[in-house]
Amino acid sequence: MRIAAPFPLQTPAPVGARPGPVRPYAVTGARLQTADPQAVPDPRPVYDPRTQTAAYADGTPLTAMATSKKTNPDGDTKNPPQHDEGADPGVFE
């Protein structure tokens, strides 16, 4: 069994249907955010292969958001969730 899969580093976190009756201790006290299923998703930035950077449809570069505020897991659309720090280092094989 490989504990650390070096390539690529991680898989996206899955989205479950609903929590079960038994839950991890770590979730206790977690900050809960609900999402309106009817809400229209905000547009994602578009990657430009020429410049090799991304920007929103209105031309705002993604970097403007990066430097305006820390991007944290419960940030809004302009501060999108980051999956790096403390993330799963790899998949089990």
């Binding site: 201790y25 809960l32 403390g86």
Partner: peptide
């Protein structure tokens, strides 16, 4: 206590972030 691994869990309609 600190979460080990990914610090958030997503279910349909909700996201929980652990600190």
């Amino acid at each position: 206590t600190k979460p080990l691994g990914i610090p958030y869990i997503a279910h349909t309609g909700q996201v929980e972030t652990m600190y």
